[in-house]
Design a protein around this nucleic acid. Structure first.
Lengths: 332, 332
DNA sequence: TGTATGAGTGTAACCGGTTACATTTTGCTG
DNA sequence: CAGCAAAATGTAACCGGTTACACTCATACA
């Protein structure tokens, strides 16, 4: 394996000069510089980054924990993350945790063991135990955030967004609105449900909890939940799904029951994934600036790492937008 | 930062003994072992993995280059990759390249610069230039593979699979079949087109190239291509899309034209993504063992890295299955 | 008692860069 | 041409582990 010593020998200079030629070319004389670069070329030399990282105690890598990359919303967030990191010359180590806490802690350990300089967590779970004490590695929590996050966060005002969707349905005359919830312990689930209730309360309606069905953010769970809602004698005239994937499942179930969307029943989702505008009918949903979540998270994390910041408890709220398509219409 | 010397001092032993206690506990005496472990606990010691990697010249990390993680098929492949790697105590560094060659080369450089021990490429592009010469880093190419791959490959017999889909359409009586292709220079596109032609040839039909539309594996491109096909006076009675995402776009366009699927026109896809069974109507497509692609790729790569293997030109062909759903029916 | 054996532990070299400090070379001025 | 500052380059310590080799000491056996 060619190392810096081989190159130095080849160029007839010291290792320090080789290092300087590659890192700060302006402080070596032009003649030497040419000779060294030729030797680098000839030897096919690539610096051993492991050695550099070891020496500098900096890896310029960031670990990103994603609950599931299969979700197209997260895929967009990651796109934003990567672009931002690349611009600052940081690499992204992407970890698909599937929500498994053991896996999350294992990957988070890459920061404790100095394989990465910081961590971006896209789920409301803190992989560092109390025993890590005050020496908490640099971390940012985005998208689904902890209530009392021990770090900066980037999130949507999910409650307000859910309220806007619900108000849209209410404005269309819907009074019995079904709700398909996300995973039980997710703050997203809770906040979106709260926003839903807020809107009902403002409209002077008493919420009917029997219309709230459990789901897990996957199409099959939306399919099942919709089945339960349709089986009722007093089925709702609209269903608000806490994400688009469940809305897709719900729409499938509604069609199998021989009902029309939105004539017989309206459906609204959340996230505005790529398929939302291509399903039948196109889905009314909440659009989020997914890429910006990634960008912001990187910016905040690098602030901590570079200690440009002391507070370290900045919290960003990203904007959302209701996208009205054809899956919602006037109540029958 | 607590390091091994601090722990050694705390336990009253040498650094070698600390190292041995953690790596080969059976060769230190029980008394010493307890003392060292207590010191490790007390100091909150985590070995600096960068130092370990540097010293051992092994990172136990694998780089995976994914064209786009937003594609749910790739997401499943990655799931398989991660599970397999974790079992062998390797980490996965996932890179979303978006097909950008500069990004791919940059991340592939992580192997040349010894930040990772090997590379799994899910796209038909070789990120190593000829100048890397015979010192090619360990690499495996999966899913979309190079024709003359300089490394082991894991792939589907795309040609045979496309032929099976086409035969299914022919058996339903379709004679004018439209084709929505993938990216121009992808071997997937070419092989699936070849299989399509194979089936037509066997059926004694002359292929009509004007029915082959360009696409790029995204829903909007399927939407546009379907528009072109429907605008023809002699529009096809079936459309074979080279992947499911384009099929979703095509179905949307067909419905907007007021046509029914499959009564007026049949649609078939490829990949069997999660939404394939939830769109309207559920999509006939080719299912691939996505997770197995990942598992196999890791197995082959570790064979090379551990030099269990000298040949290094093993090629695995994975099985596929035609999944007939409701988007295909008898020709009108 | 002397010696061989082996378990347990310590010492220090090593991995490949970076960089503080020392040394040499160059350029300029009087 | 001496003398000095500045520029260019070299020397070697250092990052934090791992491990070959050396050493100590208890035990077993002749």
């Amino acid at each position: 394996m060619t190392n810096i010593r081989k190159v130095a020998e080849l160029a007839g200079v010291s290792v320090a000069t080789v290092s300087r030629t590659l890192k700060t070319p302006d402080i070596v004389s032009p003649g030497t510089r040419d000779r060294v670069l030729a030797a680098v070329e000839q030897a096919g030399y690539r610096p051993n980054l492991t050695a550099v990282q070891f020496r500098s105690q900096r890896t310029r890598n960031l670990v990103v924990l994603v609950p599931t990359i299969a979700n197209t919303f997260y895929a967009r967030v990651i796109g934003g993350l990567q672009a931002a990191a690349q611009r600052r010359e940081y690499g992204i180590l992407l970890c698909n945790t599937l929500g498994d806490e053991r896996t999350e802690r294992a990957y988070a350990g890459m920061v404790s063991t100095r394989q990465a300089d910081g961590l971006i967590q896209l789920r409301a779970y803190d992989p560092f135990t109390a025993s890590d004490g005050k020496a908490r590695p640099p971390m940012v929590n985005a998208c689904e955030v902890l209530d009392e996050a021990p770090c900066p966060t980037v999130r949507l005002d999910n409650r307000a967004a859910a309220r806007v969707v619900t108000e849209h349905l209410l404005a269309l005359g819907h009074r019995r609105i079904g709700m398909i919830k996300g995973p039980r312990n997710s703050p997203l689930t809770r906040d979106r449900l709260l926003g839903f209730q807020d809107a009902l309360a403002v409209a002077g309606l008493t919420p009917d909890e029997s219309l709230w069905c459990p789901g897990d953010f996957t199409p099959p769970s939306g399919y099942r939940a919709a089945g339960d809602l349709l089986a009722r004698a007093d089925r709702p005239t609209a269903i608000f799904c806490e994400n688009d994937e469940m809305a897709m499942g719900a729409m499938r179930r509604i069609k199998e029951a021989g009902l029309r969307i939105p004539e017989d029943i309206s459906v609204a989702g959340f996230d505005d994934i790529a398929f939302a505008s291509f399903c039948d009918p196109p889905l009314t949903t909440i659009a989020q600036p997914a890429e910006d979540f990634g960008r912001e998270a990187v910016a905040l994390l690098l602030d901590i790492i570079d200690e440009r910041d002391d507070a370290a408890d900045k919290h960003r709220i990203m904007p959302f937008e209701l996208v009205v398509r054809e899956s919602t219409g006037p109540a029958a």
